[in-house]
């Protein structure tokens, strides 16, 4: 196993990391603005992937159309969850919305299993040769999917840091009461935040679905590494969450030759524990409040 093999693993880990990063970004958004850990994140991804599969089953082969359906379905579900459940739980502390999100996650998975069964689905992609970059074989789909995930992350960052609504979202994350007395329309901020969560999880679901297989538990299985990345990156730091997810993804893949496939997740969490022991606020977290 030479150098090229390890670079290949690192690239694979980076794409895996970006997928986890998207989920971590969605968790981070809800945690910062909505103030609870959202357990439906993984299942929003799953719904997106199934929507893509549904379009494929209808005979439409365009991956872009399937992706569009994935994003649309996740956004619609995310918005519905907010309007019908989480809006009523605003200001009720962290526990009530967290428990509701766990219940909703199970409900969404059950509904998917009821209608789509437990069969595994795959996105039908034409077989292509790996492309050679500096003597290293790279799957072109990995490059595409990594690119899509990266563009999605950059788009969310641009919204958060360059647009007025993003600024308002960060203000609500800092201090809800001050945001309200600053005249910020908090309802609108929540609405946009949940749509953004739907968008991100839809893209993540599609990327994960194309790279692996589509089944009811696919998103749920992704939830723990995503939570780990969100904590590792520093709660409240969206860029940190994505970078931490890359660390988790690359560490997992690079450990495969030594530890084997089964134990790679264990190593990811060992990295998490070690980093948190050294930096309790996470890699990019700040313990800072104006008092």
């Amino acid at each position: 196993m030479g150098y090229a093999y390890y670079v290949g693993l690192a690239i694979n880990g980076a794409v895996e990391g970006l997928t986890i990063g998207l989920a971590a970004l969605a968790i981070n958004l809800v945690f910062a603005v909505g103030r609870f850990p959202n357990a439906t994140t993984g299942d929003l991804m799953t719904v997106g992937a199934y929507a893509g599969i549904a379009v494929q089953q209808s005979g439409l082969r365009s991956l872009w159309l399937q992706g569009l359906a994935a994003v649309g379905a996740s956004m619609a579900l995310s918005l519905a969850l907010y309007l019908f459940v989480f809006r009523a739980l605003r200001g009720r502390g962290m526990l009530a919305p967290l428990l509701a999100s766990i219940g909703l996650a199970i409900l969404v998975r059950s509904v998917l299993s009821f209608f789509a069964g437990h069969d595994q689905y795959v996105f039908q992609l034409p077989i292509v040769r790996p492309i050679m970059i500096a003597g290293i074989p790279v799957q072109s789909y990995d490059l595409w999917l990594g690119g899509v995930a990266l563009v999605c992350v950059l788009l969310v960052m641009a919204i958060l840091f360059l647009s007025p609504i993003g600024r308002q979202m960060r203000a609500v994350a800092d201090d809800l009461t001050l945001a309200r007395t600053s005249g910020i329309n908090v309802d609108r901020v929540y609405l946009v935040m949940w749509l953004l969560v739907g968008f991100v999880t839809g893209v993540a679901g599609m990327v994960l679905g194309v790279r692996t297989v589509v089944m009811p538990e696919m998103g749920w299985n992704m939830l723990l590494p995503a939570f780990a990345a969100a904590v590792l990156g520093g709660v409240g730091s969206p860029a940190g969450a994505v970078l931490a997810a890359m660390v988790v993804g690359i560490a997992q893949e690079m450990s495969t030759p030594v530890l084997g496939f089964t134990y790679k997740i264990g190593l990811a969490f060992m990295v998490l524990v070690v980093i948190l022991a050294v930096r309790p606020a996470g890699l990019f977290g700040r313990v800072e409040r104006v008092r």
Binding site: D174, T177, S182, G236, V290
Partner: peptide, 30 residues
Amino acid sequence: PETRVSLGLGYVPQVANVFPSLTVLENLQV
């Protein structure tokens, strides 16, 4: 509260009266 601001009622709270993670400029722009 947000509607009251639009009517011309400003408020400077006792503590936590700025958004700490936003820059000075962003605090004004927001």
